[in-house]
Computed example of a mutant assay.
Amino acid sequence: MRIAKRDDWKTEPMPSASTKIALEKLYSQEEFDRITAGVIPEQMEDKWFIFYEAPWIYFHRSWTGFCIFKVRFEVVGDSVKIAEVQVNRDPAEYSNTDDKRNASMLLILLNSLSGRDLRNEMLRYIKGQ
């Protein structure tokens, strides 16, 4: 498995117009290792470029390079938890300002990377909860 690095794709920094949102989630070390491997887009349909630089994982839109999410993790015993989430609030780069939908989208991305079942997160996202 190839590990994504910042230099693998065009990236823009998180703009100063950003905000923190609350999100609690624990992952096992094995799941965290899968998350931190990231994603390098392989085709036009791949919407995200994701890479890890401790202690942050960065989520960039693949077409624009805009940083949409930054997530900082902390080790807690045998697990790794989300400690902080920053979301892009620059309307020229990202127009979704609904914190619940942003949290749901981010959980879908993280759980997909970790190998977890996505059905419940997808249903919550679709329902806007």
Score class of each variant (00 low, 15 high):
126 I>M: 12
68 I>A: 01
27 Y>N: 04
122 M>N: 10
49 F>C: 01
120 N>F: 11
16 S>G: 14
114 S>M: 04
129 Q>W: 15
59 F>P: 00
110 L>S: 04
64 T>D: 10
10 K>Q: 12
83 A>K: 14
13 P>Q: 10
74 E>A: 15
129 Q>N: 12
73 F>G: 01
70 K>Q: 15
112 S>P: 01
36 T>V: 12
24 E>A: 13
123 L>D: 15
77 G>N: 08
69 F>I: 08
125 Y>D: 11
41 P>L: 00
82 I>L: 10
124 R>L: 12
31 E>T: 08
27 Y>F: 15
56 W>R: 03
2 R>E: 09
14 M>T: 09
112 S>H: 08
52 Y>D: 01
10 K>D: 09
102 N>A: 04
102 N>C: 14
80 V>C: 04
123 L>P: 10
101 R>V: 13
81 K>D: 11
9 W>K: 00
78 D>G: 06
21 I>Q: 05
72 R>H: 11
23 L>V: 06
23 L>Y: 01
70 K>W: 09
94 Y>W: 13
41 P>S: 00
18 S>W: 03
55 P>N: 02
6 R>Q: 14
37 A>M: 07
36 T>N: 05
59 F>S: 02
32 F>M: 09
47 K>P: 05
82 I>R: 05
68 I>F: 02
91 P>E: 08
45 E>P: 01
67 C>R: 00
118 L>R: 04
74 E>L: 14
81 K>F: 06
42 E>Y: 07
126 I>L: 14
58 Y>L: 06
68 I>Q: 02
71 V>S: 02
68 I>L: 07
101 R>T: 09
103 A>T: 03
16 S>Y: 08
10 K>M: 12
22 A>K: 15
71 V>H: 02
104 S>H: 05
34 R>I: 08
115 G>L: 03
31 E>A: 05
77 G>V: 06
119 R>S: 10
73 F>K: 01
48 W>D: 10
122 M>S: 10
48 W>T: 02
127 K>A: 13
68 I>M: 04
22 A>Y: 12
25 K>N: 10
43 Q>E: 14
84 E>N: 14
15 P>Y: 10
120 N>E: 14
69 F>G: 00
